[in-house]
Each structure stands twice: as structure tokens, then as C-alpha cells.
Simulated assay, not measured.
Amino acid sequence: MSASLPQGFPQPTDTNVIEVKEYPQYRAVTYTHTGDSRMATRAAFNPLYQHISSNQIAMTTPVEARYVKEGKQTEVSFLYSTPDMTPQKIDSRVMVRDTSPMMVVSIGIQGAYSWESYEQNLQKLKEWLAQHPEYEVVSPPRRLLYNSPMTPEDLKRSEVQIEIRLK
């Protein structure tokens, strides 16, 4: 990882491991992309980068992509290092939002950030959930992307996650 994790974030899940993790409250700047979810992170990069640059906010890892309406609406976020950071300027193309603490089931991935990889690993999480009826899904899936575009494809790390709670 080339940047630090937000305060209190757990380490990335190991490759091909499925685990339940807890995340603290965090603050992020978010761009909502309407259209093909495969293009969301690319479309979001410039508005998000301009926001952190104009507010002199350090880049953290991971970048978060929430698939609100899979294939049609995606929220892409750059996470702030602490939940109390307050930007001075907010462009109309982005919004700052707080996310409450959450529990997720997560699978660690190494390799290209392809849509096929996302779908295959999401299916593995759904199969895991079918075998663990003590949990219920709380919200749509998300993806955490840990590396810069300059990282070789085969070395990139990511996670697919589904927010859950005990029934």
C-alpha cells in the first residue's frame, strides 16, 4: 500500500480468505456515478482528486466503491484519515458523508481490478452467507481498492465486502 489506512481501519484481508471484520466510523468525500459501474472509479477520480487537492487533504487507501444499484449507480469515495476532518471547500460534484461503524464479510483479492474478478468474488461471499444463516445482509456490496493505478496489475490488492449483522 502506498498510502496509510484511515484511523482505526483493519488491515486488508489476505488473498482468498473470507473473514468477518469490524470497521469504525469514518468520513469520506463521495462522487456518485450514474451509468455503467465498470466505469465508476475512472469517472470519479478527477472530481475526488480535485477535492482532496484543493483542501490539502492527504490521500489514504483504500478507495471505496459502493454498488448502490449494481450496474447503474455507484458511489466512489476517497476516505479521510480521521472522522473529524472538515474540508474548507466542497465542489457541487461531490459530497462529504459520515459512515457509521459496520460489520462486513470480506474476501481478499490479488490481481487486476476487473469487473469479472469483482463478480466472481461477490459470488463467493454470497455462497459463504448461504452457509452462515446467522448473518443477514444490511446493504449493497462494496469494493475496497488498495493500490494506485501505477501498481502492476498482478500485484494489486482489493477486497469485496458485504455489510452484515447478526440476526
Rank of each mutant, 00 (worst) to 15 (best):
S2Q: 14
A3R: 11
S4G: 12
F9I: 07
F9S: 03
Q11L: 10
P12F: 02
T13L: 02
I18A: 02
V20K: 10
K21V: 12
Y23R: 03
Y23M: 05
Y23E: 04
Q25E: 14
Q25R: 13
Q25P: 01
Y26W: 12
R27I: 03
A28Y: 02
H33C: 04
H33D: 08
A40L: 08
A43W: 00
A43S: 15
L48T: 03
Q50H: 12
H51Y: 13
Q56H: 14
A58D: 12
A58F: 05
T60E: 05
T60C: 07
T61Q: 08
R66Q: 13
V68R: 01
V68H: 03
K69T: 14
E70S: 13
E75Q: 13
E75P: 04
L79T: 03
S81N: 12
T82K: 11
T82E: 11
D84H: 12
D84E: 15
P87W: 09
Q88R: 15
K89W: 10
K89G: 01
K89I: 13
K89S: 13
D91K: 09
V94L: 09
D98E: 14
P101N: 08
M102R: 07
M102N: 02
V104W: 01
I109N: 01
E116S: 13
Q123G: 08
K124C: 02
K124Y: 04
L125N: 02
L125G: 01
K126V: 08
A130G: 11
H132C: 07
P133C: 06
Y135R: 05
V137K: 03
V138Y: 04
P141H: 05
P141W: 02
R143Q: 12
L144H: 00
Y146W: 11
M150L: 12
T151M: 13
L155E: 15
K156P: 00
K156T: 09
R157T: 06
S158F: 04
E159G: 03
E159A: 05
V160C: 06
Q161R: 11
R165G: 06
K167Q: 13
